[in-house]
Amino acid sequence: MQKYILIIGACGQIGTELTLALRSKYGNDHVIASDIREGSESLMASGPFEILDATDYDALEEIVAYYEISEVYLMAAMLSATAEKFPMRAWNLNMNSLFNVLNLGKEKKIDKIFWPSSIAVFGPNTPKTDTPQNTIMEPSTVYGISKQSGERWCEYYFNKFNVDVRSIRYPGLISWKTMPGGGTTDYAVEIYHKALAKSAYTCFLKEDTALPMMFMDDAIRATLQIMESAPEAIKVRSSYNLSAMSFTPAQMAKSIQEQLPDFKMKYEPDFRQAIADSWPSSIDDTNAQQDWGWNAEFDLEKTTNEMLVNLSS
């Protein structure tokens, strides 16, 4: 029997590319995109779309029943920088949407759930280098608090109700297809657009702020890979550490200057610096490698090349 998949938050930075990847794999009509607003032309033209408020359980339940959905990817969330401005709105969206989906799983109305966590679950007391899978967390942002709470609830619903929920802690994500949505690592996408348009960029983080990052193709591949793995392979039911590369804004600027020698970078740190300072500079993802065969393909040089080539054209 062919499965039907629902993506909630399909118009966001990850959701857009994930929708298209799933449609190319399972067929356009078998992947239902949904969001609170319409998305890009390519997304809207590629298959079924529903306007959906992720915090509305009845509306969600109706779509699940109508399309006979078996898998849900919950990508709707308010990200780190935006969540600091609207704490209660962020908490309500990030937590209520998760409970809605977990409860559908508990009631056996869906079979499998993907929910993304983030490096934001870590805090100032977390070991900064090669942050292990299990460690001190103590997040200091609204987004991080909601993600850490979400991890605990995912594990709880798996242990108590056998809900097949799977999760990875995304690092900062870099894509040429979609613009970022209010996160602390957004500079790593904006920089390429400004490098090509103006040969200059003013970064909102200090030049030596190392953060874990990942090219979007790797993130999508990891998401599909964990969801396609046998249930017994998924030994972590909170969320898996995931790693690809770590670099500073200065290192990123240098990688751009190798192709665009006239590119200039300035630094004017803002409130996002404090958020970045509370996060790890690199991640140990041994568990993901061992349990379901994860391995990143993109480093900084390959990412820069891919971004500049695609954005230029």
Rank of each mutant, 00 (worst) to 15 (best):
L6P: 05
L6R: 13
L6E: 04
I8E: 00
G12K: 02
I14A: 09
E17V: 15
S24D: 15
G27L: 12
N28K: 15
H30K: 12
H30G: 00
H30F: 11
D35V: 10
R37S: 14
R37Q: 14
E38R: 13
G39V: 01
S40F: 09
S42M: 13
M44Q: 15
S46C: 04
S46L: 09
P48Q: 06
E50S: 08
E50R: 13
I51S: 03
L52Q: 06
T55N: 00
D56N: 15
D56R: 12
Y57E: 07
E61D: 15
E62P: 02
E62W: 12
V64L: 07
V64K: 08
V64P: 04
A65M: 09
Y66K: 14
Y67K: 12
E68M: 12
L79A: 01
A81G: 02
A81C: 07
E84H: 10
E84N: 07
E84K: 05
P87G: 01
R89C: 05
R89D: 13
N92C: 02
L93E: 04
M95R: 01
S97F: 02
F99D: 03
F99K: 11
L102P: 14
L104D: 07
G105C: 06
K109A: 10
D111F: 09
W115P: 02
P116A: 09
S118C: 05
I119E: 05
A120M: 00
A120K: 07
P124N: 11
P127M: 04
K128I: 00
T129R: 08
Q133D: 01
I136N: 06
E138K: 09
S140T: 15
V142A: 07
S146E: 03
K147P: 07
Q148R: 13
Q148W: 07
C154M: 15
C154I: 14
E155G: 14
Y156P: 05
N159D: 14
K160M: 14
F161N: 07
D164R: 06
S167C: 10
Y170W: 03
G172S: 00
L173T: 07
S175R: 04
K177S: 09
P180W: 06
G183N: 03
E190C: 00
I191L: 03
H193I: 03
S199Q: 14
S199N: 15
Y201T: 00
E207R: 12
E207H: 11
D208V: 08
D208S: 14
M214L: 10
F215K: 10
F215D: 03
F215H: 14
D217I: 12
D218L: 04
D218N: 06
R221K: 14
M227K: 06
S229A: 15
A230E: 14
P231V: 08
I234L: 11
V236C: 14
R237T: 13
R237V: 06
S239M: 01
L242H: 05
L242I: 13
F247C: 08
Q251M: 11
M252D: 12
A253Y: 10
S255D: 10
S255R: 03
Q257W: 07
E258C: 00
Q259V: 06
P261L: 04
F263K: 00
M265D: 07
P269T: 12
R272M: 00
R272G: 09
D277W: 05
S281Y: 04
T286G: 01
N287S: 11
N287R: 11
N287V: 12
D291S: 00
D291Q: 09
W292S: 12
N295M: 09
E297T: 11
K302P: 08
M307G: 01
N310A: 06
